[in-house]
Simulated scan of single mutants.
Amino acid sequence: MRPTMKDVAAAAGVALKTVSRVVNDEPGVNATTAQRVRTAIERLGYSRNESARVLRRGRTSSVGLVIEDVADPFYSGVTRAVEDVALRHGSLVLSGSSGEHPARERELVLTFCARRVDGLIVVPAGSDHSYLRPELDAGTPAVFLDRPPGPGLDVDTVLCDNAGGARLAVAHLRRHGHRRIAFLGDSPSIFTAAERLYGYRDALGDLADDRLVSMAPPGLDRLRADLERMLALPDPPTAVFTGNGRLTVTALRALAGRRLALVGFDDFELADLLTPGVSVIAQDPAGLGRAAAELLFRRIGGDQGPAEHLTLPVRLVPRGSGELGAERPGQG
C-alpha cells in the first residue's frame, strides 16, 4: 500500500503540517526536524501526489501546443523551445500536429482544454476561432504563434516579419541584376505564404509578373511543371524566391542543375554545404517558440495586460545561390 503523509508524520514523530512544510519546501521547520522527516520519507518510499497537489492549486502544470507538422524542422525548433521554457516553469507540454486541417486544429485545442491545460500555444490552420471564445472567457490563456487568429479574437500573437523577409530576398536578387524573379509559394490561404507573396510583389513593383508566381502546397511534380512553364516564356525568370524550407528543397530537385539564382525563406540543414550554398532568409523558430512560451507563462502567472502582438525580425544569409548574376537560364 502506498505510504501517505500521515505515515511519514507518525514515523518521524511530528505533526502532519510539519511534513507538509518539508515536502513543499516551506519555511518554519528547524533543520534537525526537517532531516528527520526526510529520513522517514526515504525509508517509507513516500512520494507526494502531484495530481492532487496541482488540482488543489487550480492548475495541472501542463500546456497545450498545436503545430502544423512535428516532422517539419521549423516546428521541431519551435516545439523544443516551448518545452525548454515549460520545463523551467515545472510544466509539461502536450503537443499535436494539425496537418493544416482546421477541424483537426479545433479537435486538438478542445481536447487539451478538456484535459485542463493551464494555457495554449496555437499555430492556426483555420481562420475561424470562435470555438475558442468559451475557453478564453473561462480563463484559459492562449498565444497564437507564426500566424494570427481569425477575425474577432484579440489574443497574444508572436509572428516573424514575413513581408519584410520577402522584400530582403527580392532586394538581394535585384542587387545582382535580376529583374525576372519567380516566386514559388505555399497555399495562398496560409497567412505566412500570403504575407511573403505580398512582400515579393511590393519589392518588385512594376516588375511583378503574375506568370512568374506559383502558389500551392509543396510537391515535386507541381513545382517542376510550373518551373518548366515559366522557363518556356519569351522572357523567362533568371532567379527564384521560394516561400519556405520545404519549397526550397523541392525547387532544388526540380531545377535539376539549371543555373538560376535562388533565395529561400527559412534556413535548412546542409544549405551551406551545397555548391553554391543556398542563400536564405532566416527566421528564428527557437526565438518564436521561446517568446510565445514566455508570454504564455506570464499570463498563467496572472498578467492581465492587453493582448501583445510581437513581430520578430528575420535576416538575410548570403551563401552564393542568390549572388549568381542575371543571365538567361541555361547559359554560363
Rank of each mutant, 00 (worst) to 15 (best):
M1N: 14
M1G: 15
M5T: 14
A9E: 08
A10K: 14
A10Y: 11
A11T: 12
A12V: 03
A15W: 10
K17R: 15
R21V: 03
V23N: 05
N24T: 11
D25S: 14
E26W: 12
E26V: 11
N30I: 03
T32I: 15
T32P: 12
T33F: 04
R36P: 10
R38Y: 04
I41G: 02
I41A: 05
E42N: 13
G45N: 05
G45D: 06
Y46L: 05
S47Q: 15
N49V: 09
E50W: 07
S51C: 06
A52C: 03
L55P: 09
R56Q: 13
R59L: 12
S61H: 09
G64L: 01
L65C: 05
I67L: 06
I67Y: 05
E68K: 08
V70C: 03
F74L: 04
Y75H: 13
R80A: 07
R80L: 10
R80P: 05
A81Y: 02
A81L: 00
V82F: 01
V82K: 00
D84Y: 07
L87H: 15
S91C: 12
L94T: 04
L94K: 02
S95E: 02
S98R: 06
S98E: 08
G99V: 00
G99Y: 02
R104K: 13
L108E: 01
L108I: 00
R115F: 08
V117K: 00
L120V: 00
V122M: 01
V123M: 03
A125S: 09
A125T: 04
A125R: 01
S127A: 15
D128Q: 07
Y131H: 13
D137H: 11
G139S: 07
T140H: 00
P141D: 06
R147C: 05
R147F: 04
P148R: 04
N162D: 15
G164V: 06
G164I: 07
L168T: 02
A169S: 01
L173V: 10
R180C: 11
I181G: 12
A182T: 01
L184I: 14
D186E: 11
S189Q: 15
I190L: 15
F191E: 06
L197M: 12
L197G: 09
R201W: 01
R201I: 02
A203T: 12
D206P: 13
D210T: 13
R211G: 07
R211P: 07
S214T: 13
S214D: 14
M215E: 14
P218M: 09
G219V: 01
G219D: 13
R222M: 09
R224Q: 12
R224K: 11
R229A: 08
M230P: 04
V240A: 10
N244F: 10
N244I: 13
R246P: 06
T248F: 02
T250L: 02
T250Y: 00
L252S: 08
L252G: 08
R253E: 14
L262S: 09
F265G: 04
D266V: 08
T275A: 14
P276V: 09
G277F: 06
V278H: 02
I281P: 10
D284H: 03
G289C: 05
G289D: 00
R290Q: 14
R290P: 08
R290L: 10
A291D: 00
L296P: 01
F297P: 03
F297I: 04
F297W: 04
R299A: 07
I300N: 02
G301V: 09
G301Q: 11
G305I: 11
H309L: 10
H309S: 14
T311W: 09
R319V: 08
G320P: 06
G330W: 06
G330H: 03
G332F: 05
